[in-house]
Design a protein around this nucleic acid. Structure first.
Lengths: 333, 333
DNA sequence: GTGAAAGCGCTAACAC
DNA sequence: GTGTTAGCGCTTTCAC
């Protein structure tokens, strides 16, 4: 095994408690002794065992990050930012994948609870009741969801949806569709309400299609429905779904944006690289990851934190078919 | 704090060691007692504290995964597969990001060593010497690199490079370039040797351009060099760089594949979605993640493990300029 | 300012 | 088959 506090104490001719103090309460030890201990520790390659320390202090200096799908391009920037921020606080992070399964989610909270000082739940699919119950086991911060009594950071999808729908109606689209996300996704409701309102305000119809898996395949699978519904403008739950829809439409011989306009949500890196480049609602995911960690580690902060969203207009949206192209409808509002 | 073994023992009228055995060596305890203990534990919501257990057994049931850049689309599938496989073994995984910095890499190994039973190093940028030294602190498995004495899983990039170059020369390209990866990337050497050999075999020139950051920006930044070098076929260190190069070329008014053909490596999800769709060397990254974890947790396995690669021909490669299109050079070899 | 002793939650001999 | 005991590596009273 590795070098322990005892060996450092022996090598240095002091008691183990002095070594301990050198690391956990340096001000309590004589400056000279301290530097001697530090030197010995350095020489032996001693590192305090965090787990042993946690047994007494109750602080593990670990947090957990539970996400639906690590490989979904929405999450990596969030994970990266969370890990960076955690490490800035001298924390390490456990990562776990739920595969969109609420049961797995719940089990993971249980499994990790003892090893962490808190957990960040990204877009959890569990019910509020379950989340509240789980929050008695360990500190919880939720991302992209509001739960009474819990810290949370949410993207302003309502605003995003409104901007997206206004953009589409501004381009002359009157028959719109909304592709919702997976069952259990908290944003579905917000999205639906905001989109419905915005559509009504512009005398446009809104067909709601879903629930759908939050993936390309999920979007592609709705291409036929979209075509059949006769809509010309679509807002999708996320970029992946929007991109999948565009592909599905393409396979059906329907051109984007000439025949159908598509808007995504998230502004993942990918959206700039597809053809047509995706018009989408940008959400500050990296910031969300960072803030979630801050909320976890500095409990006194105000919450929920709402993060602004913006519409990024690219090439997947254009004037409604039959409308003169000269209508420079692409200019924002 | 949460419920401990002692409370379960009390509630159940047995000694704590019986409770302990119920969880860590169930066969040593009477079936009836066991189910009684299990019932009590269940009722109280008891979960063994892994950290306390690890203090004695020396097994943490944690592993760590250290990657250069979580947000680089190459890694998420690998991370996801590793986490799934780890959980299958009842392990949890720490994730950490090095930002391509070898010093951070080294520090992370130190920091995590005590909390894990082993670490997976993905594409480490440290020197072999450092890695070997670190391997005395905790079990190490390296991905995309060979280090004497360590378990490793590598993609057969030599084969991939050969296939890619042969594909290009088969299309009539005679002036080729290789965009290498970041300094310290182990695959650079392999790639360079294999590409050089394959180019020579086809009487083609190979200009080596690099080192480059393994990102879109890294690829885009080489567009001018590529144009100036007068090459018509390029193999890039990875897909991201290839995609960046294509964009950079596009900005210069150079069309892909009409004027320059570009091949990537990895086959990240993104490569199917860009326009033109990227011709690339597919590497089984998810499999690599899974196998790396297996190597870590079942030490008796043979290593290094080499994973096959295949050329996936899409739309970013075409006949060399001036060559008749009727030469059905796109057919493999 | 430093040492001694107790104990965090748990496992692993060793008795019985 | 179960209880007793010691102790994993560390922090934290409490003396001195």
């Amino acid at each position: 095994m590795a070098v322990t506090i005892r060996e450092v104490a022996r090598a240095c001719g002091v008691h183990i408690s002095t070594v301990s103090r050198t690391f956990s309460a340096p001000h309590l030890v004589n400056a000279e002794t301290r530097s001697r201990v530090l030197a010995c520790a350095e020489r032996l390659g001693y590192r305090p065992n965090r787990a042993a320390r946690a047994l007494i202090t109750g602080r593990t200096y670990n947090i957990g990050l539970i996400v639906a799908d690590i490989a979904n391009p929405f999450f990596p920037p969030l994970i990266k930012a969370a890990e960076s921020q955690a490490r800035r606080h001298d924390y390490h992070v456990f990562i776990a994948n739920t595969n969109e399964d609420p049961a797995v989610e719940e089990e993971l909270v249980h499994a990790l609870a003892k090893q962490v000082d808190g957990l960040v739940l990204c877009s959890p699919r569990m019910s509020d009741g379950v989340i509240e119950r789980l929050s008695r086991e360990t500190r919880l911060v939720v991302v992209n969801r509001r739960v009474a009594g819990l810290s949370s950071v949410v993207m302003d999808v309502a605003r995003g949806a409104r901007l997206a729908i206004e953009h589409l109606t501004g381009l002359g689209h009157r028959a719109l569709a909304l592709l919702t996300g997976p069952r259990g996704a908290w944003t579905n409701g917000t999205l639906r309400r905001a989109a419905t309102l915005a559509a009504q305000a512009a005398n446009s119809s809104l067909t709601v299609l879903g629930p759908n898996p939050p993936t390309e395949a999920g979007g592609a699978a709705q291409a036929e429905q979209v075509a059949r519904a006769g809509v010309t403008g679509v807002l999708a739950y996320n970029d992946l779904m929007a991109i999948g829809l565009i592909e599905g439409l393409d396979a059906l011989g329907i051109r984007v944006p000439e025949e159908v306009s598509v808007v995504g949500i998230d502004d993942i890196a990918l959206s700039r690289l597809t053809r047509p480049k995706l018009t989408t609602v940008a959400t500050p995911t990296a910031q969300a990851g960072q803030i979630a960690v801050d909320l976890l580690l500095t409990p006194d902060q105000r919450s929920p934190v709402t993060l602004g969203t913006e519409l990024v207009i690219r090439d997947s949206t254009g004037p409604a078919p039959g409308r003169a192209r000269t209508t420079d409808a692409k200019a924002r509002r």
